[in-house]
Design a protein around this nucleic acid. Sequence first.
DNA 1: TGCCAGGTATAGG
DNA 2: CCTATACATGGC
Length: 267
Amino acid sequence: MAYNNLSIQQIADSGQIFRFNLIADNKWELIAGDKYWLIDADEEIKFPEQFWEHYFDMETDYGKFISEIPESDEYLRRAAVAAAGIRILNQDPWEMLISFIISQRKSIPAIKTGIEKLSARFGTRKKKPGTSAKGQDAYYYAFPTPEQLSGASLEELEECSLGYRAPYVCEAAGKVYRGECDLNEWRHLPDEELRAKLMSLKGVGIKVANCVMLFGYHRIGAFPVDVWIQRIMDTYYGGAFPAEKYQGFAGVMQQYMFYYERTMAKK
DNA sequence: TGCCAGGTATAGG
DNA sequence: CCTATACATGGC
């Protein structure tokens, strides 16, 4: 069966995930935590396990969100049409926390490089399932666990192009590994308390906290404001996006705008 | 080749 | 409370 509101390319380019890359014509490689999936976008999408179906949030109707956009908001309408295949993935809070700490003041390609270096250095090497790849290409590196990353020295972290963020990653890894920050327990917290917990970590401000909430805890009401979203708000919304119109799912609109604006900028 | 990147911590007013 | 500034390093 074919699915609604599902575009591999749009999701891979949406900025919510950093280990989802085009490796050949319509062939995409996706690594989430310690899992790997080689997707052939020429074929009809078939989820290899239930894990991936939930990961892609297939239980949620995104058409319903789009239908909530008023006709009067022409900009958001256009954005939603252009980005209608985006879904908010159910990613791992730990991976999102580290990834978005790294993301500050970095370009998306540079973020990806840093995460790959971290994974190659501290993550577990695993065989790629479902491919005939040979040699080095037959393996991938899982995202490092808190235990693996907390074992890294500050110097080793710096060698992964983390720059001034290395101490932030070091501290977060230690606190999570030692259980001072129980990211799974935090799943039960209401939004405000969760945000406060995240921001108690050094290197996590309001924007990174909102990204971890949106992408790692699936709090789709969270609305991260970065330079792109700020520019959009200034240009089209007089400085403030009317998030109250999208109670509980403003983060979906954020993704539509972020993707659309960046796609337009490339042309 | 320089400029800038999915921001944040910190100091000073 | 609010604003200005420094910050490491890669990618284009």
